[in-house]
């Protein structure tokens, strides 16, 4: 009935012949470290190097520029769009997943899960084209329903949010369904047996158990929307300010000659935003999952 404490390392024998051996287990992490250095380290060095130099001299001008005017608008636009997509997508995705899990029709469940798997990977130009052909200015549905005369346009912030949700909701379904499946029916029945109604079960047990997964899902959706480029580029070009579109503009040098390094500064801004998201996410995650440790 006692709980085993972690194995205590025996104190090294004083003056004995055998020195405590160093563990060789760090060797196993070498491939991972090499991978991290190649994939994250090298690009980061390039970004940092470029960001802080203008016309060959050390300067913070690129960073300053990237946080002003159109660039700042684009950065904030991206954050706003991603946050909206993350929160709405997570909510709708969770409800859809719950509907699928509790459905008595196996076929429906299979169909929704398969579709979600496919759609969550649907992005880029094909996705943009699909939407343009359907709900664009001369899209099939737009003309059929006369939406254009009602003021409908796909090529703005809300249109883009709609298109992003189209792959974000399925992604959330894919993430949440296993967690919902993991909620044991006994928990619900035990809660009922202790006098809890459905809402009290979700409030005290269901939602807390799901929270780590839900938080992870929100961050995943945020990241996906924040980094998306091709869909937006094909759909709205420059009409909706987004940081990824600005980076492309600055890189191709068709805005201001000699300001290519602003693109790198914008990338650095994106990394910082991602870092801030993690700084909020990790403590929340830790708190919500404390019962797992």
């Amino acid at each position: 009935m006692t709980v085993q404490s972690p194995v205590h390392t025996a104190p090294a024998a004083a003056g004995g012949g055998s020195r405590p051996k160093k563990s060789k287990s760090w060797l196993a992490t070498v491939p991972l470290l090499a991978f991290v250095v190649l994939v994250f380290g090298v690009p980061l060095v390039i970004i940092l190097g470029g960001t802080f130099s203008r016309e060959g001299t050390l300067s913070a001008a690129n960073v300053t520029d990237s946080l002003q005017g159109a660039y700042l608008t684009a950065l904030l636009g991206s954050v706003k769009l991603s946050a909206l997509v993350a929160v709405v997508g997570a909510l709708l995705g969770t409800f859809l997943a719950q509907a699928v899990v509790t459905s008595r029709f196996r076929l429906l469940r299979e169909a929704v899960l398969t579709a979600s798997g496919v759609l969550s990977n649907f992005g880029g130009i094909p996705l943009a084209f699909a939407w343009i052909a359907t709900l664009g200015n001369s899209g099939v549905v737009t003309s059929a329903l006369g939406l254009d005369s009602a003021g409908w346009s796909l090529y703005n912030f809300w249109g883009l949010a709609l298109v992003y949700l189209y792959f974000s909701i399925p992604l959330m379904v894919v993430v949440v369904v296993p967690a919902l499946d993991g909620l044991r029916p006994q928990w619900r029945e035990a809660a009922q047996n202790n006098g809890a109604n459905t809402w009290q079960y979700w409030r005290h047990v269901g939602i807390p158990v799901l929270t780590p997964t839900l938080l992870g899902g929100v961050v995943l959706l945020f990241g996906g929307a924040f980094a998306a480029y091709a869909t937006a580029a094909a759909m709205v070009g420059g009409t909706v300010p987004l940081v990824t579109l600005q980076i492309a503009n600055a890189l191709s040098g068709n805005v201001l000659i000699g300001h290519e390094n602003v693109a790198l500064a914008l990338s650095l801004d994106m990394i910082v935003v991602a870092g801030l998201v993690m700084a909020v996410y990790l403590p929340l995650q830790r708190r919500s999952a404390r019962w797992l440790r």
Partner: peptide
């Protein structure tokens, strides 16, 4: 088995 609420002490 496994009916205790895992998130509660």
């Amino acid at each position: 088995s496994y009916s205790l609420f895992p998130n509660l002490s």
